[in-house]
Amino acid sequence: MERSVVRKGKGGKLVKVTVVSEGGRIAAVSITGDFFAHPEEGLEQVERELIGAAISEVRGTVESATGGVTLVGLKSEDIIEMVEECLE
């Protein structure tokens, strides 16, 4: 199952989260938009770590994976809520 959620983040940045799930677990996730993340690879690491997660594990996974990433125009809370919404 594939679902996408679009949201306007801080400073007018647009964020789209797409989640492919199988049996309630994330098989693939992409976070796209005109926001910034430093280092950029940090956001790609968040996407990788979310693979296999169930909805109850999304918050903890995102919080720990974004620890060393500076997000601009996007908050980790946005990612958590949008990924959870895709899984609901």
Binding site: I31, T32, D34, F36, A37
Partner: peptide, 9 residues
């Protein structure tokens, strides 16, 4: 396009 953008969108 920005690093995180989806080209076709």
């Amino acid at each position: 396009i920005g690093y995180f953008q989806e080209v076709e969108a």
